[in-house]
């Protein structure tokens, strides 16, 4: 299976300690700990409603946790003055579950917005670069001038990925990126993430239900269950964990199929 990146043990870029998230009386996370290391692709799995997206939103700083601490690049985002916080947020690329494209802008403008706002490029150069990102994300050329409402679900995902990649971020947060993509598109997506990680040293925080993605690109897998991270390790170790949900997940019919497919194919 996949090897850990060499620097893995050394440097956690995301540190979550004792995280508690509550919505009214409902507790989603209870003293949750998680480390994400530089240069790794961490897959986060869990049943529906185990708070995968909430965890992502908390790490990105969109949600103030009820208790506990989240450190990104060694700093607590919510304690920073706005200026420094913005500088760190520029190093994030976030792909939201529904795409969250700005509906009043064309697809190319969506991807160009962070370039114009943060990288200080002029509009023409930003749009050119934005179209490169769109092509990287696998969008055809004629989609650049379209509005998000005119795109199909899979294309919205790709356009959102292009926007997330616009600033060549250090950490990429992906919320179910391959859901709604056809298998060919999903495989190409996996390959793109892998290429970018290898070339740019990206750290990827990946919330997914796609077993193929887990088997193909994830270095480590974190299982969210019972309001905590049940286990975080390489896929083999996680799959061998003695937990009913984990066993059902990885050794159910779909898990077995994905595993045998991954075993049959040599990893790049």
């Amino acid at each position: 299976m996949s090897a850990k990146p060499e620097t893995a043990a050394a440097e956690p870029v995301i540190q979550v300690r004792g995280l508690v998230n509550r919505f009214g009386a409902q507790t989603v996370h209870e003293h949750l700990d998680l480390d994400v290391y530089r240069g790794e692709i961490l897959g986060v799995v869990g049943g529906s409603g185990t708070g995968k997206s909430v965890l992502l939103r908390t790490i990105v700083g969109l949600r103030r946790p009820s208790a506990g601490q989240v450190r990104v690049f060694g700093e607590d985002l919510l304690d920073l003055p706005p200026e420094r916080r913005s500088r760190i947020e520029r190093r994030f690329g976030v792909l939201f579950q529904g795409g969250a494209l700005f509906s009043s802008q064309t697809v190319a403008e969506n991807a160009a917005t962070p370039l114009i706002e943060h990288a200080g490029l002029d509009r023409a150069l930003a749009e050119k670069l934005a179209r490169l990102k769109l092509a990287l994300a696998g969008l055809p050329n004629d989609s650049a001038a379209k509005l998000p409402a005119e795109l199909s679900g899979g294309m919205v995902k790709r356009a959102a990925l292009a926007r997330a990649l616009a600033l060549d971020p250090d950490i990429l947060f992906l919320d179910e990126p391959t859901a709604g993509l056809d298998p060919i598109g999903a495989a190409a997506f996996d390959q793109l993430i892998l290429t970018l990680r290898d070339a740019l040293g990206l750290t990827v925080f990946l919330v997914t239900h796609d077993l193929d993605t887990l088997y193909t690109i994830c270095d480590r897998v974190a299982v969210l269950s019972q309001k905590k991270v049940l286990v975080t390790d390489t896929l083999d170790v996680v799959a061998a964990t003695d937990d009913a949900w984990v066993q059902e997940y990885f050794h159910g019919p779909r898990g077995r199929a994905a595993q045998s497919a991954a075993d049959a194919r040599p990893r790049s």
């Binding site: 092509a135 004629d142 001038a145 070339a199 740019l200």
Partner: peptide, 23 residues
């Protein structure tokens, strides 16, 4: 490095797509 070569390859692939004239 191999990783860089892969990056250049991927980007070149993408560039050929967006070089096609836009209607």
């Amino acid at each position: 490095s191999a990783a860089r070569r892969a990056l250049i390859e991927t980007v070149c692939e993408a560039v050929t797509v967006w070089r096609q004239p836009m209607p």
